[in-house]
Amino acid sequence: MKIRTLVAGIALGLATLLPAHAAVVNNGNFGPLTGVITFDDFDGYVTAVPELLPVGSVGALNVAYQSGFDSVVGAFAADLQSNGAWGPGSPFLFGDTSHGQINLLSFSITGGAARGIGAFFNAVNAGPILLAAWNGNTLLETHVFSVVTPMTSYNEGAFRGFFRQAGDINKFTVIGSGVAMDNLTLAPVPEPGTYAMLLAGLGLIGGIVARRRKA
């Protein structure tokens, strides 16, 4: 099965099982109190077998990457074929599904749960990318999208993620063919006293996103 078909098939199947989606964030206005994991502390960590690799923390939340076949944490270049290239610049995460694996890019969250989670994405030949948020083994919601960029472009992607009413995300998975991913962003569940900061934080996050897109 081709990956495009595989991803679409998985998405269709999952959609029939899911409750109504919460807010899908397409533009990076992800909310305040977020933290970004850049993968910049890695330099080509090739993960050939399943392994849990701590990749960063956001507040009290610790994020670990459950590797898939032939994924690279801290990649330095990736050919997205008709969809441009990622790199050079800050290291990112790159993975493929040439081995037919699902849950290609899988992140687990410990130390609490997140309300929102997302990242910048692109994929080979603008192929579909399936995002899924989980609570344990319970699938919370999914979203399928594609990113279309010029074949001559570099480091162009799009921010996609979920922002939920409930802070219940403790796993996040990505499926796609040749997915490049950077700036994994988490919104922890805020303390009650910090809700007042939400509005002010929106502008700051927007600024971070804008800088990333220029990279």
Binding site: I3, Q81, D96, G178
Partner: peptide, 15 residues
Amino acid sequence: FPFPTTGGVSSDRGL
């Protein structure tokens, strides 16, 4: 130096 791509390395793009 080929670019990494799906399934390995590219024969269409490199340095």
